[in-house]
Simulated scan of single mutants.
Amino acid sequence: MRKTTTTALTRRLAAAVALGSFLALAVPAGTATAAPAEPVPTVFFGDSYTANFGIAPVTDQDSERGWCFQATENYPAAATRILADNNITLGIQADASCGAALIHHFWQEQELPFGAGRVPAQQDALKDDTKLVVGGTGGNTLGFTSILKQCSDELRKHPLLPGEPVDPDKPAGECRDFFESEDAKAWLDYQFQQVEADLEQTLQRMSYFAPDAERVLVGYPRLVPKDTAKCLTAAPGQTELPFADIPKDALPVLDQVQKRLDDVMKKAAADDDADFVDLYDRTGSNTACDGANRGIGGLLEDSRLDLFGQPIPWYAHPNEKGRDIQAKHVAVKIETVLNR
Rank of each mutant, 00 (worst) to 15 (best):
L241Y: 08
D128H: 09
V43D: 07
A125S: 12
L217M: 08
P41N: 07
V17M: 11
G173P: 00
A94H: 09
Q61T: 11
Q123F: 14
E73S: 14
A186I: 08
T233N: 09
P318F: 07
W314P: 02
G30A: 12
R294E: 13
V133M: 04
L126D: 08
A269Q: 01
E111Y: 04
T287M: 10
R65C: 10
V218D: 02
E214D: 15
Y75M: 06
T137W: 09
T72Y: 04
F192I: 03
E301F: 02
L307W: 15
L25A: 02
G135V: 12
V27H: 13
Q122G: 09
A51P: 01
L241E: 05
P120W: 02
L223R: 04
T130N: 03
K333T: 11
N286H: 15
Q238I: 02
R282K: 14
K328M: 03
L251K: 09
A16H: 10
D273C: 08
G54N: 10
T5G: 06
D129E: 14
K149P: 13
P236A: 13
E64L: 13
L241A: 09
P39I: 10
A327F: 10
V17E: 12
R176F: 11
A292E: 15
F69C: 09
T137R: 06
T239A: 12
W314Q: 00
D124C: 09
H105L: 01
E64D: 10
P165K: 03
A292W: 15
R2C: 11
E154P: 02
T283N: 08
Q70H: 01
A32R: 11
K185N: 03
R118S: 03
P168M: 06
L132G: 07
T72Q: 13
A270Q: 12
A35W: 02
L112V: 09
A125N: 07
D245M: 06
T72H: 07
R340H: 13
P311M: 05
G138T: 03
G135E: 11
D290F: 13
L155Q: 08
A24H: 07
R11E: 15
K266V: 12
D273N: 15
A35T: 03
A316R: 03
Q150W: 10
D95G: 07
A270N: 10
P171K: 01
A331Q: 05
Q256P: 00
D198P: 03
A77I: 05
L305M: 06
R65K: 12
K131Q: 13
P252E: 12
I334C: 10
R156Y: 05
V257H: 10
A34D: 13
T72C: 02
D324N: 13
N140K: 02
V166D: 06
V43L: 10
C289L: 01
P41R: 06
T89A: 07
R282G: 04
V253S: 06
D129W: 13
A71I: 07
R81K: 11
A78D: 09
I296F: 05
A213N: 08
T31L: 09
S63N: 12
R65M: 11
A172W: 03
P311G: 04
E174Y: 01
K333L: 09
P120N: 02
L13A: 15
E73L: 14
D177T: 13
D183S: 14
A292I: 15
L307S: 12
D85K: 11
E320D: 14
P236F: 15
A16G: 05
A18P: 06
T80V: 06
P242F: 11
G173E: 05
K259A: 15
C231I: 02
V257C: 10
F22R: 02
K259T: 14
Q150T: 14
L251E: 04
